[in-house]
Every structure is written in structure tokens, then in C-alpha cells.
Write a protein that binds this DNA or RNA. Structure first.
Length: 283
DNA sequence: ATGGGGGCCTGCCGGC
DNA sequence: TGCCGGCAGGCCCCCA
């Protein structure tokens, strides 16, 4: 659900209330999300100070003073709800536990951070900080799309000879880590690439155009504070505004936004997921 | 190795 | 108003 910009927005919202602050107590209200929580997670979290809040792809990483890192994935519907603090635009009173609040962290500064995830596709794990990169969930992730290692030459190498569609290739977290359905649709539209084109068949100059488009759409979404659809709210509880700037995502049947184009946005299904695109502008 | 599809969960929305 | 099918931003796993 939340893609890279949404997770980065959550990270930025949480950092002021969590970084440098000890976890006074952790309430782990069920034994698992998508996978079982580590044993004694609540006990290990209690008293640990959050040294830094980082992000890798769609994962939040909280480095703790106990030498362990709390890995958090929001899945499709995960949210971090902050209350009990005047830092940021949060609810001032401590929010009582609500339905689907699975893990509640009460910080020593009075803030409460509740992990709420209705669909429970999310995940949490606690690993030695030095082993974060090699954790089984993170080990095979590709480069960050906003990082230096991601460029057209890299993409060319990874896509050469591949028969999968461009849509599927950009959704593959081993190739580039952090894009999801929305931003893949938007980036392919901006780059004028047909989502169904076999990845290995896209010409180098088009990949050269694609990379800055991916970076731009992600940067703009972060700048706008994420997208936030339906049941998702960013860390400060405010709805994000980037969703109003989608060119094609969720706009089936509406006019293509390209000036002079008279087509409507199409929706097709690729490997079970909706793809939105303009058949005129994307070839 | 590659790629395609199923499944995990709950909630919401539109149509009848 | 109520019920039901379809759909949702992710990702692992199995199968051909």
C-alpha cells in the first residue's frame, strides 16, 4: 500500500517525536502480523532509546540503543497514528487503543505511536542493527530509486533480455526498490512508455528518459506529503494531497491530461493489478 | 532461472 | 436499508 513517498512521509512525521526518545513501554496486542513477531518483542523494546529513524525502500528502520533495529513494513493498510504530544500536528490527548491497533509504543516524552493495520499485510521484526541489510526481507532489494546507484545504465543491464512487461519490471523490488502500483503507472505515463512493452525491448534512450521521471514523481509526492488513498493517512493524520495530481492512476475513462491528446485513460489488468495508461501517449 | 497466478486479511463502495 | 461481488497502494510462495 504505502509506497516509498508515503513511507518517507511517515518517517518524517515520526522522527521528531521518536528520535532520541526512549520507549517507556510497548504493548504488543497480538502475536503476529503477516509473520510472527520475535519472542519477547515488547520486553526488548521497553527502555530502548530510538537513536535514528531511517527508511529503506518501503521499510521503516528504527535503530535502537540496545543494538537492535526495529524493522516495520506498513503492508497495504498500515498506519502509524501519533497522539499525546504537541510536537507536530497530532492529537494532543493520548488515543485509546482502537480496533486493529496491533502494537502501541508509549514514548518517554508522552507521545503514543500506534501501529494500526486492518488487513495485517504489514510486518515487524527486531534484528541486530548490523544485520539489517542482510535481513531476509531486505537482502534482495534493488537500489533506491532516488539514490546514486539507480540510473539508466543500471536499468539497461537489469532489463536486458527480460520478457516481463515494463509494469512488472518496475514493480519488482529486486530491480528497483520502493515503487508500487501508483508510481509505476505515473512514471510510465510521464516517460511515454507502454506498460505492456517487454522490459528488454525498451530502447536505451527511453530508459534514459524514464529514470528522471521516476525520480521526479517520487520527489513531488514526498514534497506533497504522500498520496494517501482511502484508509491511509500520513503520520500526522492529515490527508496527503499528491493524489489530486495523479495523471492516470485511478482515472479510467477520464481525459488524458496531455495537452492536445483526445484519448481517455485506459485501465487494463497486468498480473492481477490495475494498470492505468494512455494508449496514445504511451507506446 | 523466468514469469504468472494465488493467497493472505479487512473494509469500502457501487449496484441491485 | 441490506446484501454481495469486486476491488484495494504489497509481497511471498508455488507452479509450469
Amino acid at each position: 500500500m504505502p509506497e516509498l513517498p508515503e513511507v518517507e512521509t511517515v518517517r518524517r512525521g515520526l522522527a521528531p517525536v521518536m528520535e532520541g526518545v526512549r520507549i517507556a513501554s510497548a504493548d504488543v496486542r497480538r502475536p503476529d502480523l503477516r509473520w510472527p513477531f520475535p519472542a519477547d518483542m515488547a520486553k526488548r523494546l521497553r527502555g530502548a532509546r530510538v537513536e535514528a529513524l531511517r527508511r529503506r525502500s518501503k521499510y521503516l528502520l528504527a535503530d535502537l540503543s540496545i543494538g537492535e533495529t526495529l524493522i516495520v513494513h506498513l503492508g497495504m493498510s498500515g498506519r502509524m497514528v501519533v497522539s499525546g504530544t504537541t510536537l507536530g500536528q497530532f492529537q494532543r490527548e493520548i488515543a485509546p487503543a482502537e480496533k486493529h491497533d496491533h502494537v502501541i509504543l508509549d514514548m518517554e516524552n508522552g507521545a503514543r505511536v500506534s501501529f494500526n493495520d486492518a488487513r495485517r499485510f504489514g510486518a515487524m521484526d527486531l534484528v541486530p542493527t548490523g544485520e539489517t541489510e542482510t535481513h531476509w526481507l531486505l537482502a534482495s532489494l534493488g537500489p533506491e530509486p532516488l539514490g546514486n546507484r539507480f540510473d539508466a545504465a543500471y536499468l539497461r543491464g537489469r532489463l536486458a533480455g527480460r520478457g516481463m512487461s515494463m509494469k512488472a519490471a518496475l514493480l519488482d523490488q529486486r530491480i528497483v526498490a520502493g515503487l508500487g502500483n501508483i508510481y509505476v503507472c505515473e512514471a510510465l505515463f510521464r516517460a511515454g512508455i507502454d506498460p505492456a512493452t517487454p522490459a528488454g525491448a525498451v530502447a536505451p534512450d527511453r530508459l534514459e528518459r524514464l529514470v528522471p521521471m521516476i525520480r521526479a514523481v517520487l520527489s513531488e509526492a514526498i514534497e506533497a506529503g504522500g498520496s494517501s488513498l482511502r484508509d491511509y493517512r500520513q503520520a500526522d493524520g492529515e490527508l496527503g494531497y499528491f493524489q489530486h495530481r495523479f495523471s492516470v492512476y485511478g482515472r479510467e475513462g477520464q481525459p488524458c491530461p496531455t495537452p492536445g491528446c483526445d484519448r481517455n485513460v485506459n485501465r487494463i489488468v497486468q498480473s492481477g493489478r490495475s494498470t492505468f495508461f494512455c494508449a496514445q501517449c504511451q507506446r
